[in-house]
Each structure stands twice: as C-alpha cells, then as structure tokens.
Design a protein around this nucleic acid. Structure first.
Lengths: 250, 250
DNA sequence: TTGTTGCCTTGATTCAGATCAAAATCCATG
DNA sequence: CATGGATTTTGATCTGAATCAAGGCAACAA
C-alpha cells in the first residue's frame, strides 16, 4: 500500500550548502555551522494527499521543502476552506518560537521535507545571524506573495483567477523551465480541481468550467486531466488582469 | 489650509526605547545604538487622505507609525483596488533592501511616522542582530494577519466580512480599550466606507447596506456616521464566522 | 468483464453582491 | 444660512458564481 515508503533523498540533493534554502549556494555558511545543522536535521517524506500537521497540532520541527508541493490552509467551523500558502521546493515551513501549527499543512504531491528540531534550530538562529537574515528575506517575499494573492481573492474574476494560478505555477515550478520551447510551456498540474478552488476562493465546479472555457478558446491545451500545455504564455498572461510585467506570486 | 502642520511629536512619545516598535520597552537597546538611531531618524506627518508614496515610487526611508492609521493598497490597470495592509501605531513600513514601494501607502487618518533613512538603517541592522530579529518577529505576525485576511477575502460573506473588520478594529486600536465598559466598546471608525470596501473586497454600497443591517439588528449603534458603539462584543463576534477565540487579524 | 472509487465535467437554477441611479446627510466656507 | 462638494444611504435591476443534480471517464480490483 505504501506508494512511497519513507526514504532518505540521495546525498546529491541534500541541503549541504545552506540550512534554509535547499541546494542554493550560501557563501556564508561556516563548516562548523553546517556540522551543527547536520546534527539536528532529518528527512521526512509524505504521500500526495497526506496531512503533514493539522492546525493547532504541536509541531516540534521547522522544515524546508526539498521536493514536491505542499499547501497551507485554514478551515472555518462550518467546513469552508481557504488555502493561504503554497509550498514549493526550498520554501520554509513553521515559525521559530511557535510550537503549534497555525494552519493545516498538506502534501499536494509526494513531498520530501528536510526538518530541523525546533529548539536547537532557534538556538542556532541566535548564534548565527545570517540564518535569521535569510529567514527575514524569505518571510518578506512570502508577505509580498500573500498580498498579491489578496488582490486576486478580493478583486479578480473567476477567469482571471484561473489564468493567474496557471501563470504562477508555470513561472515558479523550476522543472517547467526545461519544457519551455518557443512561447509554449507545459507542465503537470500539481493540484486537484478541489485544491485549485481552495486556492482561488471558488467552487470546484467554477474552476472546471473556467478551465473548459480556456481550453475551448485555445489559451490552454490539456492532455489527460492534469497535463497542461500553454501555447502562448503572453496570451494567457493577458487574461490575468495583471499589468504586463507584474504578478510574481508564490 | 494645513489641517496639521508638520510637527515633531512630544518628547514623551518619542521612540527612545526601541528603534522599531514605538514606545515598547526594548531591554536590548544599547545606549550607543540609540545614539546612532537618533542620527538617522526624523518625523513626518501626513493629513488624512494624503498619499505617503505611490506604488513604484522610490522610498528613501523605512518608517514606523507613531500615531494614526495608514493603509497599503494595490491597484489594477482598470482601477480595481484592494487594500493589502493596515498600518496601526507601531507598525513598520518599507522593506529593507528594496528602494521602491510595492504598494500605495495612504494616510487613512492624520498620521505621524518616525522615519529612518534606509541605507544607514540597513547598515545598522547588520551590526545589530536584535533589530533584525525583532523585524522578523513583526514580519511573521504580519504574514499571519495577511493569511487570516485571505480567509476573509476568499470565503466569508459580506456580513461576516463587515463584522470581522469591526471586531479587528475594536480589538487592535489601543485607544478603545479605554472606552470599554461592561461588554460594550465604542470608537471612531478610522476608515471611510470606500476604504472599508477596499479592505474587504466589496463595493461601498454593499458595505453601507450591511452596516445598516447590523444597525437595524442592534448589533452596532452608530452616532453620526463614524462613531460606532458595540453594545455586546461577543454577539458581534458570532457574526464573523470565526471560531470563538480565533481571528486576531492586523 | 463488470463493478467500484475518485476525480472531473456539464446542465439547470438560484442568489448574494455588483451595478446603475437617486436621494439624503454632513460639513466647510463665503 | 445658503451653497456646494463629499460622503453615505437606499432602491431597482442585473449578473457571475454558487448550488443542486446528473453523468462521464480513467484506474483498479474482483
């Protein structure tokens, strides 16, 4: 039954370079800091659909996404759900100084996370200012992304929301840059229709209808249910309502 | 014509204790750091309605709100606007390391800001880790608030949105705690109907209608257009859709 | 092959909030 | 105190997305 048994990722992918942003070169890391990090680090993997932590549950680690895509969401008493964060590789999860998760954290695809026990990580942050500086940098980026997302939720139409989401995923998923040729891009949607609707503040029926509409108009081509081809990225971008350059969401 | 001439705030209110959070005691501040901050600090005041900076404009300072209420908003090409941040006293504005504002910053009421020239402030952050730590702390709080706000924008009804906003303002505006007596609170709304609609992702007509509805049902009492009395805070809280304790937005 | 299960799509209808259009109220000023 | 502009309220109507309700389709198991 285990689609992916828990496993360690290959050494070549380990986060030797920087404790926070995976596989990004971090010139400031001193060898002894890296040693210290090695000691408090461990990997965990999760299957698509699996919950990493529930809102309110204790979370004894902070982590960085190595591979796969995760989500943060909030649920209201009556079951209405809103996604409030998208976790792509190298994104950070958890808040130093807080011992319970404020959100449901879910694996949208199979996910591997590099975890650090929280308490030693915090101690390390105090001793090593550049870790905190890096974290501040990343948190400010997330805040900008959250604000872009607020514009989407508050003011965009369903069509604009869908187009925006497709553009965001196309832009941010590093793997896609490879499959880019001419003006066209293609990728596997890492989200179900339901997850998309939770992201966008829509129902899944509306998501489906708008996807169909974009398909009929040739703005996207679908191969199977999940594989998306964007024949002309700029054309899709015009449907997002953003000014030409803008909108570099999460 | 100057309703408030630019002025320095009284010495008793100056941010001697902490460079970032005004008037909050910051035990870590060393005297020489405070001296350094004194040198790069200046005050600016803005009238209600005045724009502090436009999105895209260069912003040669970072600042902390001393008194009054400001807003951050984003505008789409066709004029649709969404507020993405509310600035209350002690909130921080500007991003170290970024020289242009990503948002329109506006004074909702008359505002006094304590500004620091950006470059020296950044230098100081590098020399003084606890400033960065404090800033990280504050940014994480803002991110949490932004995420609560995303739930509001994506999933709440107009009525829930209005109730939430009233509760947020009632809770956060420190001046109100004074006017609290029994279960009732009262305060002056610092936002126009239009600003409220920009905050909530609604039209101003809908805001007005929902305010009227709450008034008719006795959940709020209005004195003039701007002064609000909340006879029973818990009753209003039930209209927000949040679980009893939750929802401590910006 | 035939369920069964989990997505996803499509259709019909409803409704909350937007839009369009007047009034009403509230100051600030001469 | 009349005037005029800004702000707010209220009304009538419209509409985009939600809701309710079937079906379709691929993957997998029996």
């Amino acid at each position: 039954m285990p689609r992916t048994a828990p496993k360690l990722i290959p050494a070549s992918q380990e986060c030797k370079d920087c404790p926070i942003r995976h596989r990004a070169v971090c010139a400031k890391c001193e060898p002894d800091e890296l040693d210290a990090l090695e000691q408090i680090k461990f990997y965990r993997s999760f299957e698509a659909g699996q919950t990493v932590v529930w809102a309110g549950d204790s979370m004894e680690f902070v982590a960085s996404v190595v591979t796969g895509i995760g989500t943060l969401s909030q649920t209201m008493e009556d079951g209405r759900r809103q996604m409030v964060g998208l976790l792509l590789p190298s994104d950070f999860v958890g808040r130093p100084g807080r011992d319970t998760s404020a959100y449901d954290v879910t694996a949208a695809t199979d996910v591997v996370m590099c975890c650090f026990r929280r308490k030693p990580f915090q101690d390390m942050m105090l001793r090593t200012p550049h870790i905190g500086q890096r974290l501040l940098e990343m948190t400010l980026d997330e805040l900008d992304a959250a604000r872009e997302w607020m514009l989407l939720l508050g003011r965009k139409t369903a069509r604009e929301k869908i187009s925006s989401l497709l553009c965001i995923i196309a832009r941010r998923d590093a793997s896609l840059k490879l499959s880019r040729s001419g003006g066209s891009m293609s990728f596997d949607l890492p989200l179900t229709r339901e997850a998309m609707s939770e992201y966008l503040g829509l129902t899944l029926e509306t998501v489906s209808r708008q996807m169909s509409a974009l398909r009929k108009e040739g703005l996207i081509v679908t191969e199977g249910k999940r594989h998306i081809v964007i024949p002309d990225f700029d054309l899709l971008l015009e449907e997002t309502g953003d000014d030409s350059d803008g909108g570099f969401l999460v």
